[in-house]
Design a binder for these strands. Structure first.
Ligand SMILES: [Zn+2]
Ligand SMILES: [Zn+2]
Length: 689
DNA sequence: CAGAACGTTTGG
DNA sequence: CCAAACGTTCTG
């Protein structure tokens, strides 16, 4: 674009939204990240001022040195800024001699939304009147944005390491088509909200989406490169915005949405990795990290928070990419597929979930999400979380802005490998099998909200009703029946399902019921769509908020043969997550037959199961012992409940209307729900018989 | 080439 | 003047 004829600040009006584009001496001021000491200048021996931190990127928002990183520790000798604070734009080397003369560049005022890959120019700040209360803070010069906590998360969540053109791609809702289920539920949801609630996408961004479409090709290419063929862009989503397709190239603007719905999460970095003009990783970035850009957690995660759905990033997942092991998240899913499936498959949320005070309890706060590279050492999560975790004493640690997508800088991971990393930074994921105790959330994924301890308040519950089934394969009978009768639509105040679309792609051999899968219940093996309870005499009402909280109610129903068990009378049953060997205990409410998981206690009771039945009719039944429960919020949305010695199958499934309404094809969805369990059941049946 | 070292610049 | 840290050079 030509600067000619344009006068700055440039005021633009897009569909009612005014934009002001300031030309901040892009190349003339050292303050500007664009500032560059041209060779010509150098030749003139009048070397221009050295560049200064942009003050806009995530790292620039960090005001405190971590005092633990490589550079902090050796500050005296290295004389470098804290790795957490290193400006994104300064990471790129001073621009080497370029054919493009500074003069030419200077004329480029309105930078194309899709800067050349070789551009290392930071995007310019765009001011928008929409930003009211925090308008100033968002438009202030970098130096004025001093809050370590990022003005209470009002700063746009941009990946400081991501080239602006890439970030802008975030505007596009990448949806992964469900591979096994036609239901476009998730897509639907994405469409309805992507343009508004993408943390990394401001509403203003959406105005620029049109021009950003050219960027899509990049992403598409990336997807293609990574072997994804079923990635689809949803440009339409982007254009749902009232904003016209005007490119302003302003990555660093907070949206009103953001302000009103600040990300309660430390956002993972959006699609791209490096802000480096050449799209190169920052210097010193560990190779293993670089290799896993595709598997960046949360890359495509769509999540609801603040009551609104957040559609994640556009970085296409790399299904074929085998560089990173697939570790489906352990979550419970509603019986339908989410377009995010593939995304999540690539996601590794092994870390404990940190549940900070701020933000919805269900919001994934797994540090993995913030780890730009899935393969990044778990012990070296980056950035540290402001609210806790990384900095047990938040006061001492650097306060990173939420959702700034700060990347682990070079020369970082190796430190952790050396075991020098302070506890503060290794709080998470130091163990491949984090315990529930610490996490208080879904241990394996950030896609799933941590369970709320208080189901009544913030838990989004999807209920499915399961009941006793006859040995004579009642399940089959059941599900062969009228779909309408099989699937009950019950209204639930809230349904977690719509919020937790972490269902991943359906994979073949997803059945967990077979012996093999049983024997090898690794994280990746959790694939099933059904809940199975070995006690076929029980009607179990199982609720899950999608993560760790599972509530099992056993109806007042009498088992025909009140036999059972092996013993060991425990008044406490335990739900065991086979995958990560985390145990959850739930107290048994004998009166209500309500078994509710408790995240707090971890009790391993291998005492078996005891089910007592006092009489043959409507007699209280007591279940004791161990209940094995598998939850997989990943690929399939699996929950596996097993009561040793008993066989329980799904009797009914309830689909919450709130959730159902998202489905573009309810019938199809219902059909899916109706059928899936059946399949699973049969498999189980084989196994069990 | 990446990382380390350090001279130098810069703002306070 | 000094702390911070950018840019260049050195080193393995
Ligand atoms: Zn540091
Ligand atoms: Zn910066």
């Amino acid at each position: 674009m030509e600067e000619a004829g344009l006068h700055f600040p440039l005021h633009m009006n897009a569909d009612g939204d005014d934009y002001v584009i300031d030309r901040e001496d892009e190349f003339g001021s050292p303050t500007s990240p664009n500032y560059y000491t041209s060779p010509e200048d150098a030749a003139d021996k009048t070397r221009l001022k050295r560049r200064r931190r942009c003050g806009q990127c995530g790292p620039c928002q960090v005001k405190e040195n971590c005092n633990k990183c490589h550079y902090c520790i050796r500050k005296d000798v290295l004389k470098q800024t804290c790795i957490y604070r290193k400006c994104v734009y300064l990471r790129s080397k001073p621009r080497p001699y370029s054919r493009t003369s500074p003069r030419q560049q200077h004329s480029q005022t309105l930078r194309p939304s899709v800067p050349p890959p070789s551009s290392n120019l930071p995007p310019q700040v765009v001011k928008s009147p929409i930003l009211t209360e925090d308008h100033d803070s968002n438009t202030k010069s970098s130096s004025e944005v001093s809050s370590p906590v990022l003005k209470n998360e009002t700063v746009s969540c941009l990946n400081p390491f991501l080239p602006s053109h890439i970030q802008e791609n975030q505007a596009f809702s990448l949806s992964v088509r469900p591979s096994s289920h036609p239901d476009q539920l998730s897509s639907q949801i994405l469409k309805s909200s992507a343009s508004v609630h993408q943390p990394f996408l401001t509403e203003h961004h959406s105005a620029a989406l049109s021009t950003l479409q050219q960027s899509v090709s990049l992403a598409t290419q990336a997807a293609s490169d990574s072997g994804h063929s079923h990635i689809s862009f949803s440009p339409s989503t982007v254009h749902n915005s009232q904003n016209p397709p005007v490119n302003h190239g302003f990555p660093y603007v907070s949206s009103q949405t953001m302000l009103h719905h600040p990300p309660k999460i430390r956002m993972p970095p959006p699609g791209g990795m490096f802000s480096d003009a050449r799209n190169q990783p920052p210097l010193g970035m560990p190779q293993h990290v670089l290799q896993n850009q595709h598997s960046m957690p949360f890359a495509h995660f769509s999540h609801r928070f603040g009551g609104e759905l957040y559609s994640g990033y556009n970085k296409p997942p790399s299904v074929s990419d085998t560089r990173a092991p697939v570790q489906p998240d352990q979550c419970m899913h509603p019986p339908f597929h989410s377009p995010l499936s593939n995304v999540m498959e690539r996601t590794h949320f092994q870390s404990n979930i940190e549940r900070t005070g701020s933000g919805p309890s269900f919001f994934p706060s797994n540090p993995e999400m913030f780890r730009p590279y899935a393969s990044l050492s778990a012990a070296y999560p980056y950035p540290p979380s402001p609210g806790g975790g990384y900095y047990p004493h938040s006061v001492s640690g650097p306060h990173l802005p939420m959702g700034m997508g700060i990347q682990p800088p070079p020369g970082f991971s190796h430190i952790s490998h050396q075991g020098n990393f302070p506890q503060a930074y290794s709080n998470f994921s130091t163990s491949p099998h984090p315990s529930f105790e610490q996490s208080g959330g879904c241990p394996k994924n950030g896609c799933c909200p941590p369970v709320s301890l208080n189901v009544d308040t913030d838990s989004r519950v999807m209920q499915e009703r399961y009941g006793s089934i006859h040995k004579s394969n009642p399940l089959r009978d059941k599900y062969d029946g009228n779909p309408k009768s099989d699937i009950l639509h019950k209204f639930n105040p809230a349904t977690w399902a719509s919020e937790y679309f972490c269902r991943l792609n359906k994979r073949p051999n997803s059945a967990v019921s077979d012996d093999v899968s049983r024997a090898s219940m690794t994280s990746s093996d959790f694939e099933c769509d059904v809940i199975s309870i070995d006690d076929f005499r029980m009607n179990a009402f199982i609720r899950s908020d999608g993560c760790n909280s599972i509530e099992i109610e056993i109806e007042d129903r009498v088992s025909e043969s009140g036999q059972l068990s092996n013993c060991s009378s425990n008044s406490v049953g335990s739900i065991k997550s086979l995958e990560n060997l985390n145990l959850k205990t739930f107290e048994k409410n004998e009166k209500s037959r309500n078994l509710k998981s408790s995240e707090k206690s971890e009790k391993n009771s291998d005492s078996g199961c005891e089910i007592k039945n006092s009489s043959s009719e409507n007699v209280k039944m007591t279940v004791k012992g161990v209940v094995f429960l598998k939850q997989d919020l990943g690929d399939e949305g699996i929950i596996h409940l097993e009561i040793p010695g008993e066989k329980v199958t799904i009797e009914d499934s309830w689909l919450d209307d709130n959730l159902a309404k998202y489905s573009c094809d309810l019938e199809d969805l219902l059909d899916f729900i109706r059928k899936e369990p059946k399949i699973e059941y049969l498999e189980n049946d084989q196994r069990l018989c």
